[in-house]
Each structure stands twice: as C-alpha cells, then as structure tokens.
Simulated assay, not measured.
Amino acid sequence: MKPTTRGTLAAVMTGMAAAVGAAATPAAAADTAPVPVPLNGVEQALHLRTPHLAGELPVPVPGAPEGPRYVEGRMIPEHALPRLPLAAGLPGADLRTPLPHLVAEGTDHLGVSAPAADLRTLTPGLSLDAPLGAPNADNFGLPDARMPQAAVLTPLLQTMPGANVETGSGA
C-alpha cells in the first residue's frame, strides 16, 4: 500500500471515529430518555384519529457519598454510614387527543403535558457515638462513661413537578 493511500485511509478512519464519538456523546449525556408510543397502526386499522402519546424516563445519576467526618470529642466519626446522593427526575408525559367539538366550536384537541421534573434524593444514613468519651485528665486519663448515642439520618426527597392542560384548534 502506498503512503498516500495509507494517509488517506488513516484520515477517513479518524473522521469516522470522531463522527461516531460525537454522535454517541449526546445520548450518553442526556438526562431523560424519550419513550414514544406508536399508535399509527391502530389509526390506520380503525380509520379514526388516535391520541399522540409520548413519555420521558429519567436516567438516574449516582453521586459521591459524603465521607465520615471526624469531630473532636467523639470516638466514632460522624456519619458512620454515609448518605448517598442520587440525582434523577420524575418521568414526564405528553398526551394530545382529538376532540369532536365537545367543549366549544373550534376546539379540536385536548393536550396534557407533564415534563420530566428534577428529583434530588439522599439515602438514609446512620450516626453513632460510643459510650466512652475522650480521655479525662481529672480521671487519671480514663475516659468518661456516658450513654451511647445512635441516630438515623432521614432520607431526603426534593422535587417540583408541574403540568399543563390545554385545548385548542388543530390536531
């Protein structure tokens, strides 16, 4: 193979690899995955207008857990079982159905749109403290005894969903 042929082949392969990499990046970085519901076959078989239905499913993204924090005066670090953050979303839906002028003249469709909403969560965690405190100089260096402590850190769930309902002309 000639050097010019090899160079051309290398340039074409490099361009194809860049194109495939660029095409794969947006799909991998998407927050939601679209889910279309095909109803065209029903529309053609029954000879009537069918609703348009589509959905969005969120792609969950785990975060980095908070590590244990060492606090002065405690034998066991704070947050012994760390909470794991998880960012995703609530599923979304888009429904558009034809109406036979039931509401008013010129009203041809009813649409409901509920876009995917962001969702932030934290899993439950555990915080413990030993029944022994820090060494006490007044007690010849022996630690003070105290009641053991245990706390369950509650899970966190934050979101703000919304929806739109509309009627109007057009399909």
Rank of each mutant, 00 (worst) to 15 (best):
L48F: 11
L48I: 10
T50P: 02
T50Q: 08
T50A: 09
T50H: 03
P51C: 07
P51I: 00
P51W: 06
P51A: 11
H52V: 10
H52Q: 06
H52Y: 08
L53W: 01
L53T: 02
A54L: 08
G55Y: 01
G55P: 07
G55T: 01
L57I: 10
P58E: 11
P58C: 13
P58H: 09
V59N: 09
P60E: 11
V61K: 15
V61Y: 13
P62R: 10
G63K: 04
A64Y: 08
A64G: 10
P65V: 08
E66V: 09
E66A: 14
E66L: 13
R69M: 14
R69K: 15
Y70R: 15
V71P: 04
V71R: 14
E72Y: 03
G73L: 15
G73H: 14
R74G: 09
R74E: 14
R74D: 11
M75V: 04
I76D: 06
I76W: 10
I76T: 11
I76Y: 05
P77W: 06
P77F: 03
P77E: 10
E78R: 14
H79P: 00
H79A: 10
H79Q: 14
A80V: 07
L81S: 01
L81G: 03
L81N: 03
P82E: 13
P82S: 15
R83E: 14
R83V: 15
R83G: 13
L84Y: 08
L84I: 12
P85E: 05
L86F: 03
L86M: 10
A88W: 05
A88D: 12
G89D: 01
G89Y: 00
L90S: 10
L90I: 12
L90Y: 09
P91Y: 03
P91E: 05
P91D: 05
G92H: 04
G92Q: 07
G92E: 04
A93K: 02
D94N: 15
